[in-house]
Design a protein around this nucleic acid. Sequence first.
DNA 1: CAGGCTATTATGTATAGACATAATGAGTCA
DNA 2: TGACTCATTATGTCTATACATAATAGCCTG
Lengths: 230, 230
Amino acid sequence: MQRNSFKAIRAELEMRISKRLWLPGETIPGEEALAVEFGAARATVNRALQELARAGLVERKRKSGTRVALHPVREARYVIPLVRAEIEASGMTYQYRLIGRRECGMPDAVAARLDVAPGTRGLHVTCLHHADGQAYQYEDRWINLDTVPQAGAESFDTISPNEWLVSNAPFSQARFSFRAAPAEGIEADILGLEAGAAVFIGERVTWLSGRSITFVRMVHPPSHTMIMDV
Amino acid sequence: MQRNSFKAIRAELEMRISKRLWLPGETIPGEEALAVEFGAARATVNRALQELARAGLVERKRKSGTRVALHPVREARYVIPLVRAEIEASGMTYQYRLIGRRECGMPDAVAARLDVAPGTRGLHVTCLHHADGQAYQYEDRWINLDTVPQAGAESFDTISPNEWLVSNAPFSQARFSFRAAPAEGIEADILGLEAGAAVFIGERVTWLSGRSITFVRMVHPPSHTMIMDV
DNA sequence: CAGGCTATTATGTATAGACATAATGAGTCA
DNA sequence: TGACTCATTATGTCTATACATAATAGCCTG
């Protein structure tokens, strides 16, 4: 790593912030000044600062300058899972079973999540992912056929919509949510749980350049733990 | 947005990928060619492509070029929460209550998580975070006094260990886990839930350059949803 | 033909200079 | 006093050029 590379500068600034040479809330020197200090071009310092801002370590505003974030927000990485890979990576055998597949009007709640007019037709697919013969995840998915019309031609008999979409419908934005809830009706039946058992529910909506792709609800039995490393 | 800005170029390329004008696995034109096509400098195209690569839509390799990702493995950002900020950001009033604070030997399970000898002394703090008067999170934390001795001098009467540590003990690594579980004993009592209610449990261990700092178990009542945006 | 060297190529990074844009604050006018 | 205008300032972006670097393909050598 070069002495004046944007990476070196970024690392140096990161160090000053973590060692509290610059306190949270404090305004740090401007790009011009830092460029002089590091003997680099302003564009280089700019790149380093932009990355720090993206990482949440500093906040930048035109005219007022760059300040150290008050609560140095760290970001964790969470890799969006391909269920099959997730299961096979832990040495278990993966099995997939399609439960239902139907093209029909979306319920209002789903249409709202996908930001389409109420009643818009979509593809509704439900299926089950097994790990070593045990139910691992129940997947309840709606696909927006306006954005992913090719999905209409897919049976999902042997390939899960999770896997198919990963390969066929890239996305640029996503919103995840996770929560605990008591198992209810169909979900409890399918997962083989008693009603009220604490299930782990993940929901996800994905978008590509402003157009919604899919909304999925993933239900895991109580033993499931989601792990994230930073 | 300018016609030839890196954002416009990024959006156009994103569109071509989403509309499958360029198929997954396909090599797209080089920076030079795209620069000519868009009437922009190569650096501008480079910036657009780098962002797409960071977003996981394309894969770039020197000499071989840029290809549309086969399995767009994307990583989500998960911001490590400062409970108070999280609550206040949603317009609710925050309230903190210390439940217990004791310096004593760690249970084996905790010592193992913190990677210290069984029986090592640590600071055990339990407390409750309220949002608009409702129990929001029960926090059960062990602090490694070998790495953070200053914590021993802190009463945690008015400032939560979460907040204190964020400001006083930076970390370099962390491992999170999340799961759903039935509420048990003390936790159920404190959160005012019936035994067996589905609670959302987060656990986190943080480290600074190979030395463990703290292990925390955070229990949320069933209504809680954790949201993550990409 | 194996093994290693070399030229080629596409991306990666740095630079100086220029102009764009948002936010601020000072000055102006009613 | 208040509302408006305008200059100032720091960041945001773009360009043209140059050189760095990783990976590949092909060539040479033993």
